[in-house]
Design a protein around this nucleic acid. Structure first.
Lengths: 370, 370
DNA sequence: CCCGCATCTGACAACGTTGTCCAGGCTCTA
DNA sequence: TAGAGCCTGGACAACGTTGTCAGATGCGGG
């Protein structure tokens, strides 16, 4: 954890005080000529310089009608000369909308979230809104802290990839009109729009694909079942096995391991032992990468299907067969839904599931080896 | 390009007007009970409910001293009952600092920017600031538009990965006190802090590595030389060749190609033709990936060193040797420098170059094939 | 020459918060 | 018990912008 040791403490800005008098040290002259944004001219300054009224400047800045070309020119010159830039904070306070939306995701460094985030930004941009974002680092408390900070900023809407499973803290915010859409995982204990990939169906199809290629002893390595997507993928695995009439043995499943070291151990255990699996279904992209490594180190080929595409998967030997989600489509769909809420088309909260796509590249089509 | 067709038009919010009278339709009662953030209680409401003064509520909210426990409890109850949340827009207007910094990058979907962006966010978080970001899509106009929008929001500082090469438009902003740090590429025509990777040295070392393994006919595929990093890498290539006394032939260099199709063509041309190269130096990660594909398709092995690491590079056969930049370190260094500016340690603008690291994995150590 | 009308302009309040400053109540001491 | 001093609480202005509305200006016609 990083700790700031600096004096920049934005939310508790201290103003230097004279010990004897208790007066601010900032000189009176300074207070008049400088405002706290460094030394920025305001509309008042522009008005004074152009010899017009405050409101006329506002009209020019906002391209409102009712200003003669000559006046407009004078104002524009003053604006350029002073380097004036409208203060959107004040504007926001007055108008009530911030033209910004918040995006809370799990980890920007995860390649899955890049395209998602980019898609959200693209939609926001098309609607003239800026994106404020932060990562929850998979920590429910941090998620809540972030979301509430964004609400305090009065973002117009929120796109949230939830880390926690209880979002009742958002009720007053939604009540107060902050549009909200959850992505990738559903909201907990509140009724809200959700955009998901079909984790259950994707996993079931992926496992069925392995079964179709002759496998019966199939391992599953996934995240903590507390995470909705992980639970759904596990359910998909079980469903496919059950459909094929294959009883699942305990040693075939590894749940809740996340760090590479332990995933590695779990994979190795499955692949050795008395009744080794001949194929593995990997519950997410990080697991897939680790399993690819483990398999590469062993001579014997093992079939593999992973959930989530990974870059360069086609260049590996064999290529990695995956159940791909469309991260960009998730982000786009969520953001569009958000703006539809903002347009006032208040529709009942909905759960949208986007289909996944099985991409066969070789690793999922290997026959069982004994 | 996405186009918004919605009525959500945040910066030009129209208020419904009665055609006959020109009066706002919003009823007087509504105006009193609802403010424009949906229906949010203000400190005034909390004060009324708790039976205390406005400033007392402010004190409680900001944990300022001078409130008796009993009063504090009453205020806190009112806050909870009403679901009050402080309006940071108003706070920002009053205090002058926004506790947010802007990050302008090129493309969030590029895996290089994930860790960078995450590092910036981490530092911002440690300093209690939020991150507002946007992508320039490599378009100078869009970069300027974004930067100015962020300035209008009065972000406290800016981290910019520049797309353009003229940043004089930022002069009044920097003058006005907006801290600014450029990353990955230098600022154009203004004096500002810059944090870079040592593109020249990295490329030179990478090419020298190929030369050390016996190559003399070495190709270079890079981005437009208008981009500073691309020019520097090209310079590094030339320097290494010159140091080894190898004259560079025209057909060995491909500059300015970016889309995969054309990179592919360029690579194929170099590898066939009358005097084919035996090794390729790839100027960035996208080029590297394409070249890996091209080489994989041809039977004959070709040596390759790429600038920028790529995921799974170690799993390919052979592993891809790269000159790695530390994206996270770039972001962290830039953000820390930004906050040092904000702390008021106004140091002269500096140019910081972070070293690159050659990671050998096999593809760069292949001997020349004839 | 004056009135009416349309057009342009600016004074003013309000948005929700925080800094300043003073009033009133309390405690403590002489 | 009175006075000094401290602590708590609240009235008020200010931050920079925009909406309202009334006043000023100019023009044309009678």
């Amino acid at each position: 954890m990083l700790v700031a040791t600096s004096s920049y403490n934005p939310m508790d800005l201290r103003i230097p005080v004279d010990d004897r008098t208790g007066q601010h040290i900032v000189a009176e002259t300074a207070r008049r000529s400088e405002n706290r944004y460094g030394n920025r001219p305001t509309m008042k300054d522009v008005a004074a310089r152009a010899g017009v009224g405050l409101k006329t400047v506002s009209r020019v800045v906002n391209a409102e009608p009712g200003v003669t070309p000559d006046t407009e020119r004078r104002v524009q010159e003053a604006i350029d000369a002073l380097g004036f830039r409208r203060n959107d904070s004040a504007r926001v306070l007055r108008k009530g909308r911030t033209a910004s939306i918040g995006l809370v995701l799990e980890d920007l460094a995860d390649p899955f979230y890049g395209p998602l985030s980019r898609a959200v930004e693209e939609v926001a941009r098309a609607h003239g809104a800026l994106l404020i974002n932060g990562s929850s680092a998979e920590d429910p408390d941090r998620e809540q802290e972030l979301v509430l900070a964004l609400c305090a900023r009065r973002v117009d809407g929120l796109v949230v990839i939830p880390a926690g499973d209880d979002h009742r803290y958002l009720e007053p915010e939604i009540e107060a009109g902050i549009a909200t859409v959850f992505v990738d995982r559903p909201a907990g204990r509140i009724d809200a729009d959700v955009v998901l990939s079909d984790s259950f169906g994707g996993a079931r199809d992926g496992v069925a694909h392995l079964i179709a290629h002759g496998h019966r002893r199939i391992g599953f390595i996934g995240d903590m079942p507390r995470i909705h997507t992980a639970a759904e993928r596990l359910r998909g695995y079980r469903a496919a096995m059950e459909d094929a009439g294959i009883p699942v043995e305990d040693g075939w499943m590894s749940l809740g391991v996340t760090d590479p070291q332990r995933v590695r151990k779990a994979a190795e255990d499955m692949l050795s032992g008395p009744s080794p699996v001949t194929a593995v279904f990997a519950g997410n992209n990080r697991v897939t990468v680790t399993v690819v490594r483990v398999i590469a180190e062993r001579g014997r080929p093992v079939a593999l299907v992973g959930f989530d595409d990974i870059e360069l998967a086609d260049l590996l030997e064999p290529g990695v067969t995956v159940v791909a989600q469309d991260a960009a489509a998730l982000g786009r769909t969520a953001a569009e839904r958000l703006f539809r809420q903002l347009d006032g088309n208040l529709i009942a909260p909905e759960r949208i599931e986007l289909p996944t796509r099985l991409i066969t590249r070789g690793s999922g089509e290997l026959p069982p080896a004994h």
